[in-house]
Design a protein around this nucleic acid. Sequence first.
DNA 1: CCCGTGACGCCAC
DNA 2: AGTGGCGCCACGG
Length: 107
Amino acid sequence: MAGGTGSSEKYFRIWETIMKIPHGKVATYGQIARLAGLGNHARMVGYALHASPPGINIPWHRVINSQGKISLSKEDGRYDLQRSLLEDEGVEFIRERINLKKYRWDK
DNA sequence: CCCGTGACGCCAC
DNA sequence: AGTGGCGCCACGG
């Protein structure tokens, strides 16, 4: 294959990395970007998630920002959804923040 | 082809 | 701890 340079491949790589996040753990955008081989381009991860096709089975809710908070706006309905999904996995929220020292995917 | 926008991160104040 | 600004890359108009 001559240079598999397809942005789709990048996205796939990101999704694949996110799928590896263990149950009850979370990962930051920067962390995913790094593990996916994209360097520190965290924005790409967020964009890839936004561009993720509906129906794809990826634990998008386990991806949060470096502050340990949900990057979505509280106005967005997905904010509460993400929080609920995480709490359902045993991830504890303190105010609107997650203790990364405790729940960050150790990888 | 130029410009604005974004599910981010880091640094300065 | 909160706010503002810059960088970085991809995509739609």
